Amino acid sequence: MTESPHSVEPTRDGEAHRQAVASASARKEDHIRLAADQRREDPAVKGHNEFDDLEFLHHALGGIDNATVDLTAQVGDWTWSAPLYINGMTGGAETAMRVNRALAIAARELNLPMASGSVGIAIDDPATAASFRVIREENPDGFVMANIGAGRPADHGQRAVDLLEANALQLHLNAVQETVMPEGGRDFADWLRGVERTVAATDVPVIVKEVGFGLSRRTLQQLQEVGVQIADVSGLGGTNFARIESARGGNAFAYLGNFGQSAAACLLDAPVAFPTLLASGGVRHPLDAIKALALGARAVGVAGPFLLPALEGTPETLTDEIRSWLDQLRMLHAMLGAATPADLTNTDLLVRGRVREFATLRGIDVAALSDRSGARLQEER
């Protein structure tokens, strides 16, 4: 979950600051409750999304031995045990402590990277830091990503990293959420320069991500120009913060519920030269993750599908759920004849529906994706 980078900054008035922090903590609880409600009730979250516009061309004799599949993923300079990570969800509230503990235990048991929710509230009020620190306490040797908002001062990124002894910093862009959030910030003019300053001021790699509205080709080009090497396109289709914040504010912005681009559209739109792309947003099951990898993502982040098991189950049931995802990812690789995640970029993919329309309007030729395996065979010959 995210928080306004402007709404809880310390002030000289101690009581006003305490009230602001209490309001931010209450907002975190609202985020968890409303996100969980979306998982239970909103058909837009579990129903059709633009990953369904992607279809693998089935080759009945193209499979390989499941035992030969190597899920190891290369993400920048890091080697991850699988092309899957637990994306940032929450922190700074009582419920968040329980959720983050369960997620961190699962990450530890399965050797998966994990991101925190936005650490801004803990920077403003150290009393809330325990709900973030539990991630590192439960997973002392794992790969952890701290998270902070792009509107924050540049040194807050390093402070978030230090709090979690993090291996990387997720810097989130959430202009749509801020616009809809009743107490949100409205000044986005300096965000690009802020990203550049944060990259320079942070001693671990910075991963820039959206919060569910997508990163366009132009945005990715701008990020690369200021030194960003890894980006999570985080597209439309999963937990929807426009709807969450609109519900908190009386639904005044309900019309922004479908604003933005999907992860599938963003991956197609991305500049070829961008160093490392990650994908999240609308990933409902392992097949969606496989499709994102086939479009060039190095790894896929999942949050929403793991929220209810973390919130309502036990760490063991959550771990079993994520282990099942990993088993299915391996089996889908074998079925598609891909020995590694990188090999999925040689699978044949049909693009239909809204994603095809998007590609046409953006001047992207998707026809070549339907015969990538044939082109690969020609090269090998």
Rank of each mutant, 00 (worst) to 15 (best):
D124A: 02
G88Q: 03
M89T: 00
G62N: 04
P83H: 02
A102D: 06
G63Q: 01
S118Q: 06
T95W: 07
G120S: 15
P126E: 13
A127F: 09
L112T: 08
R101N: 08
G117L: 01
Q74C: 03
S81D: 12
E94N: 05
P113W: 06
A129L: 15
T95R: 05
G120P: 08
V99L: 06
A107I: 00
A96H: 12
A106L: 07
N66S: 15
R108G: 02
A127R: 14
R98H: 14
I86N: 01
A73N: 04
T90H: 13
M89I: 12
M97C: 07
I105S: 09
A122L: 09
G91S: 04
A129Q: 15
L103A: 11
L110Q: 07
L103G: 05
G91F: 03
I105P: 05
A107R: 07
S118G: 12
A107V: 11
M89R: 15
G63F: 11
R108F: 06
I86Y: 01
E94Y: 06
T68L: 03
A106M: 08
A82D: 02
S116L: 11
A104K: 02
L84F: 07
L84G: 11
A96P: 10
V119A: 15
S81C: 13
G91H: 00
L84M: 12
A115L: 10
A107N: 02
R108Y: 03
V99S: 02
I86P: 05
G92N: 13
D65M: 07
G63W: 10
W80Y: 07
L71F: 07
I64W: 02
V69Y: 12
P113C: 12
G63L: 09
D77L: 14
M114T: 07
I105W: 05
P126S: 00
R108V: 03
A129H: 10
T72W: 04
I64M: 13
A107G: 00
E109Y: 11
A106I: 09
P113R: 01
A127V: 03
A73I: 09
P83A: 05
T128V: 05
G88F: 14
G76D: 10
T68D: 00
T68P: 08
A67N: 06
A93C: 15
W80M: 06
L110M: 01
D65N: 14
A82N: 03
L71K: 01
T79Q: 14
G117F: 01
I64H: 01
A104H: 06
G76H: 10
L71C: 05
W80N: 14
A73E: 02
W78R: 15
G92T: 11
N111V: 03
A106H: 12
V99W: 00
N111F: 04
T90R: 11
A73M: 09
I105A: 08
T90N: 13
L103E: 11
D65L: 04
A115I: 01
A104F: 09
G62E: 13
S81R: 15
V75D: 05
W80L: 10
I64A: 00
T79L: 01
G88T: 09
S81P: 04
N100C: 09
I105N: 08
A82K: 08
P113T: 10
A104T: 06
I86A: 03
V75L: 11
L71T: 08
Y85F: 15
D125F: 11
A73S: 06
S81L: 06
Y85G: 13
E94S: 05
